[in-house]
Design a protein around this nucleic acid. Structure first.
Lengths: 135, 135
DNA sequence: TTAATTGCAAACGGTTTGCCACGTT
DNA sequence: AACGTGGCAAACCGTTTGCAATTAA
């Protein structure tokens, strides 16, 4: 929400941590991780910086499936699978379908700016944890 | 969470109201609407019944992270457009792509149970409200 | 210097829950 | 009678925000 953004060690550490993982972490996970090296860092700082980074296009917010937001330093168009049992979220190596937006725009009358595809299911770990019967 | 479910006028009224609209309403909207004919109805009842109906497969929950949940009495596989300006959600008359799940299953190792496609953009009303320049 | 940023803690908003009376079966 | 359900209100939990002190530019 500021005209210029300064470089702070907190924001830098947050982005570094988010870039170091492919786990699409929650704010709480990031907060916990950051406290190891920055014990004074507060939740407010994490949330404020996540929103600054999102505003700058350096971070993607995954608002879907679960109750908590998840964050992704990979801002390219890509798709996700979420485990409905443990909450884990993985990337899916599917090609981005950019043409979809035009078709949706024609159908809806909206000006379409983007789309999201999420798959739901049980992850391999949860599958093996509950035996082969699964569902 | 009960073994059997009784028929109550509250639950019936809730399902009727949800079925009467295509607006993918929030719990608050449903609560307000229900209070017109059932002034004593409480929020707890609305939430509990929404979860019972979801459990029974009569209602679909559209979760969007930290934002409000929306509910849909159309439980068939279909896709949505959401206006990022006013929050409105519309159905999109696109054919359901059931084959997607198999491809995602092969790629991910998850047992895929479903998927969801959401489009984002500005709805016609918000577009005309802000002039043709838009963005 | 000065405005963005932080830490802290309180506030917020949507959702869930405990309790007890009530209503369906 | 038995037990699912409703109303009420408090609790919960993720996220946001006000404020005074700090810090990058």
């Amino acid at each position: 929400m500021a005209l210029t953004h300064r470089q702070t060690k907190q924001r830098r550490a947050l982005l570094d941590l988010l870039r170091s993982t492919k786990s699409h972490p929650t704010a709480a996970w990031l907060y916990d991780g950051l406290r190891k090296n920055h014990p004074e860092m507060s939740q407010g700082t994490v949330y404020r910086n996540l929103s600054v980074l999102a505003e700058q296009g350096l971070v993607q917010v995954l608002r879907s499936g679960s109750a908590q937001d998840r964050f992704d330093a990979d801002t390219s168009l890509h798709y996700h699978v979420a485990c409905t049992r443990c909450g884990r979220v993985d990337d899916l190596p599917l090609p981005p379908e950019t043409e979809r937006n035009k078709a949706a725009e024609a159908l809806s009358g909206y000006r379409i700016t983007g789309h999201r595809i999420d798959y739901y299911g049980i992850c391999p770990e949860c599958l093996s944890a509950s035996g082969s019967s699964g569902s």
